[in-house]
Design a protein around this nucleic acid. Structure first.
Length: 587
RNA sequence: GCCCCGGUAGCUCAAUAGGACAGAGCAAAGCACUCCUAACGCUUAGGUUGAGAGUUCGAGUCCCUCCCGGGGCACCA
């Protein structure tokens, strides 16, 4: 926003360094933390420390001397209202009127693109969600779905072209067990509603049956053999029932506003995976120990000549010659680069327990000579547990189903909506409840660092107060409500010619930081930077709302504030969009 | 045994590529609703950032050693 003035100041600082023989260190700007008037700041501790060379000196004192000298020299620079030196810091305060006018004008001009970066013409892939077909979808699965979706949104906003990929686990022992139970006890049945729940029920029933009677394992082996031989009955049944699961997932993805560009199915990679294993053997990277009853393995540490264990040993093919997850992951990684050779990065949003696995897969591919292997990156996240550190697992029955959570959250939101918006049509009330309920579910999973475990409990999941999505949505609604009263007619660009209050300045300040925050979130791959930003923005708006009347004040203050409200509404809307959270029109 | 991650207010979490007094929410106590929607706001209280040593002008952040918790380490995914 003030890039020009900033660069000018930078040039002058360097000029001063040259004249006084100080080292030409980079000038790093930070925001001045104080409220009231905004600006940028830089420190001179580093320069001061360097200036002493090997001899000693009082760094703090020297830093402050430099700051004072520069404050003197820069005083009067255009674009800055005030320049001061404090404790070795040089603070440059922007001219408030000019600054706020520029910010507001820019937001209103750029609209939903405000804060977004220039197109970089660099393509990325984010793989996330990867649900298992023939199983229930529970709350533990949400984290990957939300994180991946929001990362994709953030990276897009930062300027990348993003391919959103899904990798459903559509085959494997769990599917075989499911098919066995279905064909034996439920043949011909079809789910009508709540597909995913129904699929999950068939699966857990299979597990129960197998637990009760160990002899049934033989039937599972037979079923697996039939699958291997591509027995038409089994394959057809698999195809049909798999689709049910996918339909169920799609329903939920639509509800959650999550979309994919590309589906890779686990079942597609069995053969190509085995081909890669053959290749690894030919290249002498993998070792076939099947003759001695072992498996096909890659001794990664040994290949790399590492003295200590790091990547350990990866099994790439079972001793019976069948493929395992690792086999398929080798082929999947390759397929992604066959489809999109220009990928700058290929991200995998998968839980932290698979960290070693991915290191092994990527390192093995690197050893095999695939140069793109170094562009693969695992983005781990911690699990969602139940109180008492209980892991959510379908087999254990320790799960909270997504359907139930959405239903509960939406129902709770609906009672509040009905209470507060009696005059609204039922249909609109439902819509708002959905936006609020789902937003409330998403927010807590996005607002904590991905390497922190989330403990799910109903009470806090359904608590809409405080640092939560509804707070931000409410700020949006309030802004919207003011603007509706002026029929959304926004006054022409004008510079505020009254002294801005602290809450107006804070609000503008936060709006101004948006594009920095998006870039930072993209750089660090951290959605929580956006949840923090959105929350602070909402808080600043709520503060402004209570402190500054808009419609009841005289011109030109009134028009300026209407413009500010419009800019704030846009900024909040953009933040919510990045988080995949709907901004409702009323609450 | 080896590797990875966490430990910040009673609880749940922040802390911008080492930078200004470690900040929010919840819970607690009090205040506030004839005024653009109170799903809001204000005040108070609450901290030896797990412990110890180190690097630095400056450490919650970086190095080292411990303690506690979680996870991972050959044919599960």
């Amino acid at each position: 926003m003030f890039e020009f003035e900033q660069r000018l100041a930078e040039a002058q600082i360097h000029q001063y360094y040259r004249e006084t023989g100080l080292p030409l260190t980079e000038v790093k700007w930070t925001w001045i933390p104080f409220n009231g008037q905004w600006g940028i700041a830089t420190t001179f501790f580093q320069v001061a420390a360097l200036s002493f060379g090997s001899s000693r000196g009082n760094v703090a004192q020297r830093a402050n001397e430099i700051a004072v000298a520069l404050a003197e020299r820069l005083s009067g620079t255009e674009g800055f209202d005030r320049i001061e030196a404090v404790n070795g810091y040089l603070n440059l305060f922007f001219s408030t009127s000019d600054y706020s006018r520029r910010i507001i004008a820019r937001v209103l001009e750029e609209g939903e693109r405000y804060g977004h970066g220039q197109r970089l013409n660099q393509r990325l892939m984010v793989e996330f969600s990867h649900p298992n077909t023939h199983k229930a979808f529970h709350v533990g699965h949400l984290r990957s779905a939300f994180l991946g979706d929001v990362l994709a949104r953030i990276l897009e906003a930062a300027g990348y072209d993003v391919i959103r990929a899904n990798y459903p686990g559509d085959i494997g022992l769990h599917v075989i067990k499911w098919l066995w139970n279905y064909l034996k006890y439920h043949k011909g049945e079809k789910p009508d509603k709540d597909i995913t729940r129904w699929m999950g029920t068939i699966y857990s029933e299979a597990i129960k049956r197998l637990e009760q009677d160990a002899a049934l394992e033989e039937e599972i082996r037979e079923m697996y053999a039939r699958w291997d031989k591509r027995d038409p009955e089994v394959v057809d049944c698999w195809k049909e029932t798999r689709q049910w699961s996918l339909d169920g997932f799609n329903e939920m993805y639509n509800l959650l506003d999550i979309h994919f560009d590309r589906y890779y199915f686990n079942s597609m990679f069995e053969k190509p995976g085995k081909e890669i294993v053959t290749e690894l053997l030919a290249k002498g990277i993998a070792e076939d120990e099947r003759a001695s009853g072992g498996a096909v393995i890659v001794k990664i540490d040994q290949m790399l000549g590492l003295p200590e264990e790091k990547f350990r040993v990866m099994v790439v093919l079972r001793s019976d010659g069948t493929a395992l997850y690792a086999t398929e992951d080798l082929a999947l990684a390759r397929q992604k680069f066959l489809d999109y050779p220009d990928l700058v990065k290929s991200f995998y949003v998968v839980d932290v327990r698979q960290s070693l696995h991915f290191q092994q897969v990527f390192k093995t591919l690197e050893l095999a000579g695939y140069e793109w292997a170094t562009r693969c990156q695992h983005l781990p996240y911690e699990l969602v547990n139940l109180p008492g550190n209980v892991v959510m697992a379908s087999r254990e029955g320790t799960v909270v189903l997504l359907e139930d959570l959405i239903r509960e959250a939406t129902a709770r939101a609906l009672t509040v909506v009905k209470e507060k918006n009696r005059e609204l049509a039922e249909e609109n009330q439902q819509e708002i409840a959905k936006a609020v309920g789902i937003g409330a579910i998403k927010f807590p999973m996005l607002s904590r660092d991905s390497n922190k475990v989330v403990t799910f409990d109903w009470e806090s999941a359904l608590d809409f107060n405080g640092q939560a999505a509804p707070y931000i949505q409410y700020a949006y609604v309030r802004a919207n409500s003011i603007l509706r009263k002026v029929d959304n007619i926004i006054p022409e660009d004008l510079a505020p010619d009254y002294e801005l209050s602290k809450s107006e300045i804070t609000l503008i300040d936060l709006i101004a930081r948006m594009s920095d925050d998006i870039q930072k979130a993209a750089r660090d791959l951290k959605p929580l930077i956006i949840t923090n930003q959105a929350y602070e923005l909402a808080r600043a708006f709520n503060d402004f709302y209570t402190q500054c009347p808009v419609l009841g004040v005289e011109e030109p203050q009134r028009s300026t504030r209407i413009r500010l409200v419009a800019a704030a509404r846009q900024a909040i809307a953009n933040s919510l969009a990045l988080l995949g959270i709907t901004a409702p029109q009323a609450m």
